[in-house]
């Protein structure tokens, strides 16, 4: 029971037409629905639920909410009770608050980000189906991403004022939602300040990540690719489409993932992320990156984080 995986992210975009083109032609998603308010819903080919991304028209960029899927409907009641007992307010949104989705449990993480949990979303199947499937479908566009993999949220951190919502979120995700910590980055005397936390509920190295920042925000939403070759092809796709690349193809020390960071047309950071990294298990010892090696943890080859990586987010 409990949380299974990321379900969808709802993000704000400032020009819907160019945003849709980006997620179709660069990421390789397909539009599955547009609602009367102009929100556009998209899906990756290897996902079986109706959608994993909601683009929402706005005068700014950033995250509206991120949603995770639970295994059983009754999990929503159990988790609501746990979250309330922990001291956070919740709201059960009725069926069809979002199209094709059942009731949703809405609450805020200690960092302030809105999170939702749901159990029902219309199942439409992957693009190769479930009977004698081919390994990939014809007609894929762009990077041909398999699925929305994870998100990284920027969380208010001010050690001098005793504020560390990275640590607060980590504790909440572990103790209330049943996630496990796979890796962390620590700084300060004796490594006492947790400035980054990577947590999983599947068997991948992370399903959500938190990094300390002056203000709350979205660092990136990430889309899964199989391999390093797919990452390099995705880089070609970005160049062909004149996408602003933030960090060219490289490898993370943290999670061992292969990566490109780039921006959607509203400035929301995207990642194409390849490799399953390692088998994440509840009893796997937590990997810790110390202050002197955080650069290698973030970008393993180059060994240092660029300024834009830590200061630029929406």
């Amino acid at each position: 029971m409990g949380v299974m995986r990321i379900g969808h992210a709802s993000i704000k975009v400032m020009d819907m037409a160019v945003a849709v083109k980006h997620y179709e032609n660069v990421i390789g998603m397909k539009v599955v629905h547009t609602d009367p308010n102009g929100n556009v819903y998209l899906k990756c080919w290897d996902e079986w639920d109706k959608y994993s991304l909601i683009l929402s028209p706005s005068d700014r960029a950033g995250l509206n909410h991120v949603a995770y899927k639970v295994e059983h409907d009754a999990d929503l009641d159990v988790l609501q009770q746990r979250i309330e007992t922990y001291g956070s307010k919740t709201e059960m949104l009725p069926v069809a608050t979002l199209p094709f989705v059942g009731r949703m449990l809405k609450f805020n993480l200690p960092s302030g980000h809105e999170m939702r949990l749901f159990q029902q979303k219309e199942v439409v199947g992957t693009d190769v189906g479930s009977t004698n499937p081919d390994p990939w479908p014809d007609g894929l566009k762009g990077a041909g991403a398999h699925w929305l993999d994870h998100c990284l949220l920027m969380c208010p951190l001010d050690p001098e004022k005793g504020i560390n919502t990275v640590a607060d979120n980590c504790k909440f995700m572990k103790e209330v939602l049943g996630f496990h910590l796979s890796e962390q980055a620590v700084v300060g005397p004796g490594g006492s300040i947790q400035i980054a936390a990577f947590l999983f509920c599947t068997t991948k190295p992370h399903d959500i990540a938190f990094v300390g920042a002056p203000t709350m925000g979205l660092h990136h939403v990430s889309f899964f690719l199989d391999s390093w070759a797919d990452i390099l092809k995705a880089g070609d796709v970005m160049a062909k489409n004149r996408v602003k690349i933030d960090v060219a193809p490289t490898r993370h020390g943290i999670t061992r993932g292969e990566t490109i960071y780039f921006f959607d047309p509203s400035g929301n950071r995207n990642e194409t992320f390849a490799g399953l990294g390692y088998l994440a298990q509840p009893d796997r010892p937590v990997t810790t990156w110390t202050e002197d090696s955080i650069g290698r943890g973030i970008f393993y080859h180059h060994g240092e984080a660029t300024e834009s990586f830590t200061t630029v987010y929406t």
Binding site: M14, K244, G267, N268
Partner: peptide, 26 residues
């Protein structure tokens, strides 16, 4: 930063002269 009007790191004030807005600003 994002070079797409979303992240705000290149915020400037035009003290003199005139500019054309070429896209959405968050």
């Amino acid at each position: 930063g994002c070079v797409n009007g979303g992240c705000g790191v290149c915020k400037v004030k035009v003290m003199r002269g005139r500019c054309l807005k070429v896209g959405a600003v968050s």
